[in-house]
Design a protein around this nucleic acid. Structure first.
Lengths: 231, 231
DNA sequence: TATCATTAGAATGTATACAATAATACAAGA
DNA sequence: TCTTGTATTATTGTATACATTCTAATGATA
């Protein structure tokens, strides 16, 4: 099954459908498309040089991801995700990441645990060097690895989805040294609790980590708002 | 947007893709297909009298739902959901339904609240008459309505998905009078807390309601196991 | 006999053709 | 002028044809 997953991911990147899917998702999340924009199959197909078939399949996938709304016999429209949606996702994640960390105490492998510690170590290095892209990348890896380590297909799947959704918000979140350092410190606490198999502590730390990141997100928003005022 | 959703659901039931999707999901969840069964596009198409196109789209949708695994250039395989998956879903739900009930305190409309009470009332009626199909149906309605009432598109969506997944387990869960009565009593507690806008209580009751239903599920499993032994 | 290359078959991936549906524009009548 | 019906057009829904990829069987060779 794991081998399947790998084949899947690999080929998804090279199949036309996979490429169209990735492209559209990127454009929706990055804001290239506006809310309620109509996504016409032929137009997109022409833009990317493919036929309608892979475009259709990509649109259907995006619908299941909640990024596109398909009205039968009418068209596909960008749903986008509102600020409220992002906020909701973070609150939901604060619960589920807690659960995830608790379950990881039971199911994590030694290799996974070592990888987590390595990620924390590397992140500390890059934040001091000011490589914020790397920090964001390592943050992604940390969480994805933790999802995998919880040993629950279901929980891992839903957390992965949400993690992807909130990508935009997270980038802002870690692009300032002080905030990034706090975040990495919280990661370290979580790993420590998991290593000691302290489920309650792991759950608590992971829960609070997301709650903190909500606060950091709000802080960043406020700063951005102030900047706009000063202009 | 709401109008769109309606159109969508309506047409999904009548489009070939929607029918194939519903049929396959039903067959997977009910156990007609075994884990790892290969789902060949042409075969399914012939069985249902449609071409490969709608079958392909349905399979892609099922993959996003996690019920099917597609290996590129190879085939689609039934993933199914294991007992462990069901267990995980219930634990996850226990947290999210709590959150849902809490949010409902802020966002529920008067009409929705009245509907919830009506459902509880009707369920009490039907459980005394022994109409367990009706009880299950009302249980479904209760939860779906609660999801809608929380006012969060995101939370509503994920809970709805899980609710659907765990359908099989729930049917067993409520098919005995004593268990059904307990469940309905818990529903009443939740509604009461929401009416009084007591977020903490609503969250607590909803959380415990799912935890209780896990226990009821285990009880039912144990009984079934005992029956098999006595045969 | 074991192993590897080749090839035939079958399945999916993609493109395209055709059907059904919905939106639009325009004209006729009140 | 407003409404309504109709025809046109554009778009999605479905079927089918073709391309590519994987699998497995066959046969040649060491």
């Amino acid at each position: 099954m794991e081998a399947y997953e790998n084949q899947k991911d690999a080929a998804d990147k090279y199949s036309l459908r996979g490429r169209v899917f990735a492209k559209l998702r990127e454009d929706i999340l990055s804001g290239t498309y506006q809310e309620m924009d109509e996504l016409k199959e032929v137009v997109i197909g022409q833009e990317l040089g493919v036929s309608r078939t892979p475009v259709r399949e990509a649109l259907r996938q995006l619908e299941l991801e909640g990024l596109v709304t398909i009205v039968p016999n009418k068209g596909a429209y960008v749903t986008g995700i509102s600020d409220q949606d992002i906020e909701d996702i973070f609150v939901i994640r604060s619960y589920l990441e807690g659960l995830c960390a608790a379950w990881a105490c039971r199911n994590i492998t030694k290799e996974q645990l070592d990888s987590l510690e390595e990620i924390v170590y590397l992140a500390n290095f890059h934040v001091e060097k000011g490589n914020f892209d790397q920090v964001v990348e390592l943050d992604n890896k940390f969480h994805e690895l933790l999802y995998e380590a919880c040993g629950s297909r279901i929980l891992s799947h839903v957390l992965s989805d949400y993690h992807h959704y909130a990508r935009r918000a997270r980038t802002v979140n870690l692009s300032e040294a002080a905030r990034a350092r706090h975040s990495i410190g919280e990661h370290a606490d979580i790993v420590k609790a998991i290593r000691e198999k302290d489920e309650a502590a792991a759950e608590q730390y992971a829960h609070e980590h997301i709650e903190e990141s909500i606060r950091r997100m709000h802080l960043a928003d406020d700063e951005a708002a102030r900047e706009r005022e000063n202009e």
